[in-house]
Simulated assay, not measured.
Amino acid sequence: MCHPFACSVVAQRPGHVYNLRMAAKTPPTSPVEMIAALAALGEMRVWSVLITIFGDAVAARGGQVSAMTLQTILDRLRFKPEAMRVAIHRLVKDGWISRDKQGRQSYYKLSKEGRAEFLPATQRIYAEAPALAGPWQLAILPPMPEKQRGEAKKRYSDAGYLAVSPTCFIAPAGTPAPKDDQALNLDAPLAQVPNWVRETLGPPHLQIEYQQLERMLERLSRTKVTQGDEAAALRVIMIHQWRRVLLRHADLPAELLPATWRGEACRALVLQEHKRLSALADPWLDNEIGSGTAALAC
């Protein structure tokens, strides 16, 4: 199983496809259609959606949720019970969540290891603005064989640097260089950043995904929602698709990104729609899970 916070785009599940070209002509008008449209933006692995549910619906309510409530939300997203059972089994086996059996009902919560991975990502997902560091510094590698260059790239990546070319890396000023650093380190003003750097840090495929997400979020804002369970499901799938794109790149200032980058426009819409949907979703979730705001228990 892939890492729950590592997302990729692959083919949709059979029976859960929404034609984006058709969407341009017939925008979704109901919550059910909107759920299908959002699902079509990128892959919906059940185990990854479950992690989103824990983050968006469970964490603020004591951290524990019943299997029945999880399935109720997944039903709205058109996942079958057997798919949830398989995903839950894998998440428990891999140590991401723990299970507590109470009579005939099972309850689940993120494990200590799961929370360690989950909390930093949550801070980025729900932030009102990206946590931008600056000024920036460049590290330029000297000539070296390809194998050594690959090893150096991993060391710089692990140290918090972003690659803008095979031999050039960028990081917030003051970021410690990796051990055995042989690079030329320079301060990097952002006044004149070449387009090739912007396109490297904000690649075309992510630009397209943000543009598609923005269009769907605008349609979501025009979708009338009246039921709490539908609002909760819409909120989960919206956050899931936002997370799927957001966690595949670093938080960077506009000066380092292409002019067509729509990440911050999507952030504004996500926060707007999260607030709107919460008016219906939160009372329903409080009734299903509880209204406690205690920290996640160990």
Rank of each mutant, 00 (worst) to 15 (best):
158 D>E: 11
223 T>Q: 04
270 V>K: 08
50 L>T: 00
277 L>H: 13
227 Q>H: 13
87 A>D: 01
31 P>I: 05
139 A>N: 02
211 Q>P: 04
260 T>K: 00
213 L>V: 01
124 R>L: 07
39 A>D: 08
263 G>L: 01
58 V>N: 02
62 G>T: 01
48 S>A: 08
147 K>P: 04
288 E>Y: 03
233 A>Y: 04
77 L>M: 10
30 S>D: 03
145 P>R: 04
74 L>H: 02
285 L>T: 04
31 P>A: 05
174 G>W: 14
92 V>C: 02
178 P>Y: 05
281 A>S: 02
282 D>F: 10
114 G>E: 00
162 L>F: 00
219 R>H: 10
52 T>Y: 02
49 V>T: 03
297 A>G: 11
57 A>C: 10
87 A>M: 13
136 W>K: 02
283 P>R: 05
271 L>E: 02
152 A>F: 09
233 A>R: 00
60 A>D: 08
57 A>P: 01
227 Q>F: 11
232 A>I: 01
107 Y>T: 02
142 P>N: 07
166 P>I: 07
200 T>M: 06
210 Y>F: 10
47 W>Y: 14
229 D>E: 14
129 A>F: 14
1 M>Y: 12
289 I>P: 01
61 R>G: 03
264 E>L: 14
161 Y>L: 14
37 A>L: 15
59 A>Y: 10
175 T>L: 06
231 A>W: 05
287 N>S: 10
265 A>P: 03
2 C>A: 15
130 P>F: 07
144 M>S: 06
37 A>T: 08
181 D>G: 10
118 F>M: 07
202 G>E: 02
65 V>R: 05
211 Q>C: 02
233 A>K: 01
92 V>K: 06
33 E>S: 10
20 L>V: 12
17 V>A: 12
3 H>N: 15
69 T>W: 02
29 T>G: 07
80 K>N: 11
155 R>A: 13
203 P>D: 03
14 P>M: 01
90 R>C: 09
102 Q>L: 10
236 V>F: 07
205 H>Q: 15
224 K>A: 12
112 K>Q: 07
228 G>N: 06
110 L>M: 08
185 N>M: 12
135 P>A: 08
195 N>C: 00
110 L>E: 02
222 R>F: 14
120 P>Q: 13
271 L>H: 07
154 K>L: 10
150 G>T: 05
224 K>G: 11
210 Y>D: 06
213 L>D: 02
166 P>G: 10
291 S>F: 14
147 K>S: 14
228 G>F: 07
133 A>F: 13
119 L>I: 15
140 I>P: 01
